[in-house]
Design a protein around this nucleic acid. Structure first.
Lengths: 209, 209
DNA sequence: ACGCTTTTCAGGGATATCGCCGAATACTGC
DNA sequence: GCAGTATTCGGCGATATCCCTGAAAAGCGT
């Protein structure tokens, strides 16, 4: 026990190359090491239970579920878990959900390696690691203009090219109601028409194509 | 010279973690090694001239230009260059452009490491490395339904939420012309309306939001 | 020079969307 | 209970879009 115990890191990402990169980077450090890797949300939960890592790096996009949902599940079981959410460069909504869901850090895959390592060290030390540009983005763009579940549902239908009449039929509501929802959606997003609503929603990460 | 010369690989990707992963993976092999890394298209071209690698791994999304355009520039100077285009999971158009542009291989970041290595070896041996699912996708979905430059331009305007009238003004054409273009676009993409046209175009990688 | 594609333009009818009005039900939080 | 929000519904007028027809100029390859 004379050796200083290293920070035990769990890495979840569906891209093997990213996992390799993270593993190589982290295992090169004297103060941390990778104790487990996975590529799905269910693996993440299973591995967390088994390994109880000090820090978990969680990709947002996983084959079976959102990494954020996996994180929330883990946090409900281990409220002390320190999770850093990793993303390629998605929209604002992901950040908000991640932070509201209890992420201790938010990290971009385009960040230089030393910043990645610093983020891990900060989070392990009990601090939060949010890149300043992300924090600023959140403060500005995100207020209370979040869409309701129903509105997102409608928006998704719109993106699929359905007419209001068709959307009404599919969701078992009247066409008038669909109109009202779309009106609200456009107001909240600041869109001129339904087409721009889709564009803005995709950019913000509200819907995925 | 008794030692077998290793395959010299150049890796271009704007995500340091992916580069790290690739580097770690490749340098672990006995028959290949990383001779250079870069994160932009211009770096790619510069490094290729200097290093003349046996195989170049080129990410499609780079900060300054498309990796495919960087590849085309390189090929115009070194027609024998063997370039493998690497992507996260983009649309069909990227593949088509990559292969038409002279890529010797196409690779997904989600592929397992051994397949990545196999692809590099195949391409170095002068063969092509196209994942079967990609090849199948190309054969089906892609025939001659490519949009013209003008049509893509119009489509981009549509995505921004501009009305036909506004698009006409911006591009200095009549509204009737805009209509015709949009009609053609929807025909080619098989879309019911302009909104779905956006959705399909983004999925296929024709436009980017 | 001929054919093909692209791009340009126009008019009109059917349909869809946008914007605005008002209104009822239901659930959440205080 | 009561305020606030979400969801539901209807109608109507102005405008936009979709779809059709027909046409013509410019560029490209053969």
């Amino acid at each position: 026990m004379s050796e200083p115990s290293k920070v035990r890191v769990l890495s979840i990402d569906d891209h093997p190359l990213v996992r390799e990169g993270l593993a190589a980077l982290i295992n090169d450090q004297t103060d941390m090491r990778i104790v487990g890797q996975g590529s799905t949300g269910h693996e993440a939960i299973k591995l967390f239970r088994e390994l109880r890592p000090d820090v978990a790096l969680m990709d947002v996009r996983l084959p079976d579920m959102s990494g954020i949902d996996a994180m929330i599940t883990i946090l409900s079981e281990f409220p002390e878990a320190r999770v850093i959410v990793v993303t390629s460069s998605e929209g604002d909504v992901e950040m908000q959900r991640a932070l509201e869901g209890g992420a201790k850090g938010y990290m971009l895959k385009s960040m230089p390696p030393n910043e990645v390592l610093q983020a891990i060290r900060k989070v392990h030390a009990g601090k939060k690691a949010i890149p300043p540009e992300i924090a600023a983005h959140l403060a500005n763009h995100m207020s209370d203009e979040t869409l309701t579940d129903r509105e997102v549902e409608i928006l998704q239908q719109v993106a699929e090219g359905n007419r209001n009449r068709d959307i009404a039929d599919r969701l078992f509501i009247s066409e008038g109601t669909v109109k009202v929802h779309i009106k609200h959606i456009m107001e909240k997003l600041g869109a001129n028409d339904r087409t721009q609503a889709i564009t803005i929603a995709v950019r913000r990460g509200i819907i995925r194509l």
